[in-house]
């Protein structure tokens, strides 16, 4: 590492979360989260339902802005820039931080147009055919669809649709890809294909993946953050970060007892 590296950690931090709390109206969904996402690694967010891991994920591309009453306290920064500063344009931000959703959601357009959608928005000047091919190759879908690019994306199988959605996210050449339980609607074989794909994508992209599947987290990720829910005095539920470390450490020798219980399948 070069001498100008700010911290002692081996890799650069892409997204830095400092004591962030998230509210929907009066409801506090997340409390006091501090978490650094390293560059070109896969970070898994795990934890029981309702612990706010998807909420945190959607803070990173400001998709939560669409929810009425949503607000963040504390600080989330992207390459040192405050994500929630007034001068940040969420539209511009989302072009750098792509997202793959839980349910495959291709547009009801052709495979080609699905991928070209993002680049066309920014007025991509290069060879669109080439970009579509590269994106599909990167998402390991090219061989299956190269002869039917004009076909409707919704006609593909679930696993293919999800890879199409990954290709669509890649096509805008983002810096970070957020994945919200990308395999939860897929069969085991499609899931494995996507997991293999993640290993290749991490050469170019920083990936954050929310998953309910602990084997998946242990198989694919470099870092793992374990979230849990706790009851507040008023009877509400609020999510918080229990432990964040290298994946191996979380799964083999976690510091916290609740982490140990969760990863060994004793609750959640």
């Amino acid at each position: 590492m070069s001498s100008d590296t700010k911290s002692s950690s081996p890799t650069e931090t892409v997204l830095k979360t400092e004591n962030a709390s998230v509210y929907y109206g009066n409801f506090r969904a997340l409390q006091g989260i501090s978490l650094d996402i390293p560059k070109q690694q896969i970070t898994a967010l795990i934890g029981p339902s309702g612990c706010g891991k998807s909420t945190l994920l959607r803070c990173y591309n400001r998709l939560n802005d669409l929810v009425k009453g949503f607000r963040v306290e504390g600080k989330i920064s992207y390459h040192g820039q405050d994500l929630y500063a007034p001068e940040i344009d969420p539209v511009e931000l989302r072009r750098r931080i792509g997202m793959v959703f839980q349910k495959p959601n291709p547009f009801p357009k052709s495979i080609y147009d699905n991928i070209a959608f993002g680049p066309r928005l920014v007025g991509y000047k290069g060879d669109m055919d080439d970009l579509v091919e590269r994106s599909l190759k990167q998402s390991a879908l090219w061989d299956e669809v190269k002869d039917k690019l004009k076909q409707n994306g919704a006609a593909l199988s679930g696993g293919q649709q999800q890879r199409l959605c990954i290709a669509r996210a890649i096509a805008v050449q983002p810096d970070v890809i957020l994945m919200d339980e990308p395999c939860s609607a897929l069969d085991p074989i499609s899931t494995l294909r996507i997991e293999d794909l993640l290993q290749e994508l991490k050469q170019h992209y920083t990936i954050i993946i929310v998953t309910h599947n602990m084997q998946q987290a242990s198989r694919v990720s470099d870092m793992t953050a374990f979230f849990n829910v706790e009851m507040t005095e008023k009877g509400g539920r609020v999510g918080h970060l229990v432990e964040y470390s290298e994946t191996q450490r979380i799964f083999q020798s976690p510091t916290e007892k609740s982490t140990q219980e969760y990863v060994s399948g004793r609750f959640g």
Partner: peptide, 27 residues
């Protein structure tokens, strides 16, 4: 129209109007 489509478009960096014109109306 499935809300997932709107989110997908916004997630790709479409503005509200681009989402309406290119995704919501065609769908």
């Amino acid at each position: 129209v499935a809300p997932e489509l709107r989110q997908a478009a916004l997630g790709l960096g479409a503005t509200r109007w681009e989402t309406i014109l290119k995704i919501m109306l065609p769908a």
